[in-house]
Design a protein around this nucleic acid. Structure first.
Lengths: 218, 218
DNA sequence: TCCAGAACTGGACATGTGTCCAGACGCTAG
DNA sequence: CTAGCGTCTGGACACATGTCCAGTTCTGGA
């Protein structure tokens, strides 16, 4: 988890102060928030995020409209735009909210690198399997040129980078890590376009890791 | 040279207006699967594609509008929509038109795999360096849910797959190829978002290939 | 209790996308 | 020369996105 420094647009600030997230657990703020959202605002944001997930689940990225999300959250469209700069921002924020809860698996014991990589990312894969529409929508939304999306994207990238780095170990070949990271983006992309299935991601990444880190698993 | 067998929406049929069909009349203007273009139509398509490249160069993906492209090509918007199903289709088609001209380098001699991979893709990188806006726009456009985009995307994917396969050799480890292909998508994606530079692609891919195919280059 | 400011509302506006269609145009066969 | 047909036109339409703002409702603190 981490807190997307709530900025002008609040969006990210969901996990703030008293803010409870969708499922109700409270959260520890990570990054120092510059601005706090009051309980009411936090609630509005939460409702929007929640409504957004439902909308995207039902109608996919294309069928998602901010106005529909606002309506479902029982909020005026203009209010939604107060918190999210754009549809893409909303979508990335929905994904980030879920993703940020994923931590590195505890004390990866004696497994080999490939397996650790696979495990590290399997939680993301699980998320993507549970919410394929969201994952796929986020893939598209991430490409948007939008200052707010930039921030969120950076956090998503940072987070998966950290996950990978931890799985791979601090002394791993930089090129190997680089390659693995690119492969991950590539697989996510392919899954977003429907070329591969999200549930195959862990296996694919395990194969990639074993090929990259010559662990002779095959 | 792969020939984009001109299809429903003409787009791909850019290559030479020779296309006079055996039986030139098909009534279904909209969804007819295979339609060949007369010289005049081919010219219109060419002008649109050309204008599109200029527009995207000047204004980027977001600033690109079909109407502006049509105006630049001195054609009515409705006419543009006759040939291209959507803005995304136009963009992918522009890219494909360039990409399809790229061939595998001749008989790669005794170089090692990593270097062959780097060489094979360097022409694409050159294209992307020359037209970064186009490449980046295409990255976005590829994600569109659009039947026409599907086709073009498939051709683009097929073509790069072939390039890679040839560079890597027919007996290469499938997982290695798979990983390399994903890494390629990933790097293209990262370049499209501005995280890396298009001109670094060949080096990055060479590093990836050498890591994947244990050629002990490091 | 009361009120200033924060939060939200609702609807108009500017812009863009993609569709549709009646009619004008231009090439070519007869 | 002229009819016919494929091609192109231009503009209206339906709908989405994102902006703006005057006005209303809510909230917390004196």
């Amino acid at each position: 988890m981490s807190d997307p420094t709530s900025q002008s647009r609040a969006g990210s600030g969901t996990r703030e102060a008293d803010a409870r997230d969708i499922d109700g657990h409270e959260s520890g703020p990570r990054t120092s928030p510059r601005r706090h959202l009051g309980a009411k605002q936090a609630d509005t944001v939460t409702r929007l995020l929640h409504a957004g997930v439902e909308e995207v689940r039902e109608h996919g990225y294309d069928g998602l409209s901010i106005r529909a999300v606002a309506a479902r959250a029982q909020v005026a469209p203009a209010t939604a735009y107060t918190y999210f700069a754009s549809k893409d921002h909303l979508v990335t924020e929905m994904f980030w909210q879920r993703l940020s809860e994923i931590e590195s698996p505890p004390e990866s014991t004696e497994q080999d690198t490939a397996e650790r990589v696979s495990r590290s990312l399997s939680d993301i894969a699980v998320l993507a399997v549970q919410e394929p529409e969201l994952a796929s929508a986020c893939t598209t939304a991430m490409l948007s040129n939008d200052a707010e999306v930039d921030r969120t994207r950076a956090m998503i990238g940072q987070h998966t980078h950290t996950l990978l780095r931890q799985a791979v170990g601090p002394d791993a070949d930089p090129h190997g890590l680089q390659t693995l990271e690119a492969a991950w983006s590539g697989f996510m992309l392919q899954a977003g376009m429907g070329y591969i299935k999200y549930e195959d991601l862990p296996l694919l990444m395990e194969q990639a890791a074993s090929v990259v880190f010559r662990k002779e698993i095959q």
